[in-house]
């Protein structure tokens, strides 16, 4: 049975099909028809609604727009303290874009994001596929999966820091005991492996939960039809599960991309960007410049470049993915 959130008389329209009890409604099919006359439409305008939205608009303005404008302001000026500023135009931007330090940080960032996406998305999908679809164990699995997501980021960093310590950490000692020469505070490769391992541990669950939600939405008839058509498990995955999961995976990749691109706390707590600069990702470098060296101008310019890269990549990704038969 569907539980309406509001009085039916006040509902904006018939509920989406498929949620209704027993038999999903024919409008499930309707929504797949050409969108020429989809039921979405203009609502009765009501000026009072703006007052309800106003607090949120104000909050967003103070939270996002005002600070961003401050950064923009800094990025085109030079200061030597005492609140005295000189206009510098695009100087900091040229400097940032031309610096090899920025290039290296960006490369490390892209490498990190690439690696974790390549691991987390397939792994997440695989785990979601292996999870039971209903019953007691389904709930248990879901709770277990949600657990890492509930742990604060700095705690995750600290946990892995301790876990991986070569002398007393469980992981570090075990690896060394097995004959591997492992010390993440000294070897760049070990540091990277530990950082990637930590991220995979922390965030694969998100992909799992999203993929699982996508899988649960597939009607049983699809699996039945596939069994009758003699489809292999791979064919079922390729032609039923993957297409039906496409939208949630799109979101999952986008979320993981943005989050991993902005990751800061965990690697800082784990490695502090070291050894050397081996794990200094963009965000860490930014903090070093802006706060460590208090170079406000270059810091602001780098922040904006950083922000624009994320925006641009997300936009390109989303446009490409949705244009390719997203409908």
């Amino acid at each position: 049975m569907r539980e309406p959130g509001a009085l039916p008389e006040l509902q904006p329209g018939p509920p989406e099909a498929g949620q209704a009890g027993g038999r999903p409604a024919p409008s499930a099919i309707r929504s797949e028809a050409p969108p020429r006359r989809a039921p979405a439409d203009g609502r009765t305008p009501n000026a009072r609604a703006w007052w309800l939205v106003a607090p949120v608009v104000a909050l967003v303005a103070f939270n996002a727009i005002v600070p961003l404008m401050t950064v923009v302001n800094y990025s085109v000026q030079e200061t030597f303290g005492d609140n005295v500023f000189f206009f510098e135009g695009m100087k900091w931007f040229r400097e940032v874009l031309g610096s090899s330090r920025f290039h290296q940080a960006l490369q490390r960032q892209l490498l990190f994001t690439g690696i974790i996406l390549l691991i987390e998305v397939p792994l997440g999908v695989a785990i979601a596929l292996a999870m039971p679809r209903r019953g007691f164990w389904a709930s248990v699995c879901l709770v277990l999966m949600a657990m890492p997501l509930l742990i604060p980021w700095n705690v995750v960093g600290a946990m892995w820091n301790l876990l991986a310590l070569p002398d007393i950490g469980l992981l570090g000692r075990t690896l060394n005991g097995m004959g591997f020469d492992y010390n993440y505070t000294r070897q760049p490769l070990a540091a990277w492996a530990t950082m990637v391992g930590m991220d995979v541990w922390h965030w694969t669950s998100l992909v799992v939960l999203l993929a699982y939600a996508g899988l649960s939405a597939i009607p049983e008839a699809y699996y039945q039809a596939a069994r009758i058509d003699g489809a292999s498990s791979w064919a079922v995955f390729r032609h039923i599960q993957l297409p039906k999961m496409k939208r949630v995976l799109l979101i999952a990749v986008l979320l993981r991309f943005m989050d991993s691109f902005m990751i800061y706390t965990e690697p800082v707590v784990l490695t502090g960007g070291g050894p050397g600069n081996a794990t200094t990702l963009l965000s860490i470098d930014l903090v070093k410049i802006a706060l460590g060296q208090f170079d406000l101008g270059p810091g602001a310019a780098m922040s904006l470049v950083y922000f624009l890269i994320i925006l641009l990549l997300s936009w390109i990704y989303y446009t490409v993915m949705t244009r390719d038969g997203g409908q």
Binding site: P24, H239, I240, K244
Partner: peptide
């Protein structure tokens, strides 16, 4: 078996849908 709600493989053409059981 034909079900209450039409089952088609969305990503495939009509041709590939029909060919699917044979290719399997």
């Amino acid at each position: 078996q034909v079900f209450q709600f039409p089952v088609v493989y969305d990503t495939m053409t009509v041709y590939d849908n029909l060919a699917f059981p044979l290719r399997n």
